[in-house]
Amino acid sequence: MAVTSRDNVIEVTKQVINEVVAPLAKEIDQKRRFPKEAFETFASNGLLGLLVPEEFGGLGGTLQDLAEVTELLATSCGSTAMCFQMHSVGTAVIASRANDVHKENYLKQIAQGKKIGTLAFSESGTGSHFYIPEIKANLKDDCYVLNGKKSFVTNGEHADFLIVLTNSVLEKKLDMIIVDTNLPGVDFKGTWEGIGFSGNNSIALEMNDVMVPETNVIGSGGEGMDLIFEVIAPTFIIGVAGANVGLARGAYNAALEHAKNRRYTDGRSLAEIQAIQFYLSDMYGAVESASLFNKSAAQAAVEGKEGAVLNVMQSKIVACDTAQKVTNIAMQVCGGYGYTKNLSVERFLRDARAGSVMGPTTEVLKEWVGKSVAGIPLF
């Protein structure tokens, strides 16, 4: 089934999950491999173009759609959700300032399922403060020359293009530059060794004298910081929050199913034990609350409501805290079985640990929210 419009995005996403994502989730985690089958399906049915405007052949989706899709994907496979999420953020930033070259070479290609993208922001020297990169673009003739290293580049060599954050040739400014991964000097290093999100292929990038056309800069020169707060931050945060809600929901579903089917010798199910019922109630309430909060924050951002920025920032805090809480409760419900790879609970628990340390971290976001409500400048 192909996505024909925003109206059937969720229906098609659920079909892809049932037919492709869920059946392969365990294998992708255990073999630590990129979810290529899911992305082949996304390419063929149009989901890669979720955030591409309709005029360029995309679905014209919004943050609300992204919140729902990432939640649904992560309910079965966190790695697939995060890979799709990073592609979507890369798409969104191009769409926000697309020139004629970007429209032809990227947006239309993404909509046709021909290109996968991602971000290359993190650097080992700056940690979670990705908005203060160390590398700088140097202008030579009609090209930017890029040298330096990036870390945690999700999708890695499976991406066709990168959105690279760099210091601008303009003093005290930042640029975002589209870099094709087939350019000379682009080299991916290492393997992903994280305890969770095993299939997201988040690896290191080295750029050695990479020559990028000047037309590949997103927006006018020096707009990088504006793009971070206007486009990257809300899209990334809402998508990551959706994924973490999905992890929590996946763990809850697995624990509920186990509680209903695990029986004692007297015939009683685990779900008939009062303490387990309390746990199930806690998980259900936490998951539904976090899901509603994230979708409400996404809607507020789309509608430009007052206070939307605070809600967006808080959505990742709520979702990541919920993911850790619920996956831990699910482990208690499932006991020894949950601690093994026979159930998916341990996978959801490992995946859920990443969200709070993924920049902007929970602590950074809490600082920003706290400063904002107190009327203190962020920087």
Rank of each mutant, 00 (worst) to 15 (best):
A2I: 12
V3T: 09
S5H: 10
I10M: 07
E11W: 05
E11H: 11
V12H: 03
T13N: 08
V16P: 03
I17E: 03
V20N: 03
V20I: 15
A25H: 00
E27R: 14
I28L: 11
R32Q: 12
S44P: 06
G46Q: 08
L47K: 08
P53G: 07
G57I: 03
G61P: 01
D65A: 10
L72M: 15
L73I: 02
M82G: 00
M86P: 02
V89R: 09
V93P: 00
R97Q: 14
A98T: 08
N105A: 13
Y106H: 12
K114W: 08
G125W: 11
G125C: 07
S128G: 11
S128D: 15
I132M: 09
I135W: 00
K136T: 14
K136R: 15
K136G: 13
N138T: 15
T154R: 07
A159D: 02
I163V: 14
N167I: 06
S168F: 04
L170R: 13
L174W: 00
D180Y: 06
T181S: 08
N182S: 13
L183G: 02
D187Y: 09
D187H: 14
T191K: 11
T191F: 03
W192H: 03
W192F: 09
E193Q: 14
G194P: 01
I195S: 15
I195C: 08
N200E: 13
I203F: 05
A204C: 00
L205N: 02
N208M: 14
D209F: 02
M211R: 10
N216F: 07
V217F: 01
V217A: 06
G222A: 12
F229M: 14
E230W: 01
E230C: 08
T235M: 04
I237G: 00
I237A: 01
G239I: 08
G239C: 07
G246P: 10
A248D: 01
A251N: 08
A254M: 03
L256H: 10
A259G: 11
K260N: 13
N261Q: 07
A271D: 09
A271Y: 04
E272R: 03
I273F: 10
A275E: 15
Q277S: 02
F278E: 15
Y279N: 13
Y279T: 01
L280E: 00
Y284V: 02
E288Y: 06
S289P: 00
S291K: 14
F293E: 10
F293G: 00
S296I: 05
A298W: 04
Q299E: 13
A301K: 10
V302A: 09
E303M: 09
G304C: 06
G304V: 05
E306G: 06
L310M: 07
Q314G: 08
T322K: 02
G335V: 10
Y337D: 13
K341S: 15
N342E: 10
V345T: 11
E346A: 06
D351I: 08
T361G: 05
W368S: 04
W368P: 01
G370I: 02
S372P: 01
V373Q: 13
V373I: 15
I376L: 10
L378F: 12
L378P: 01
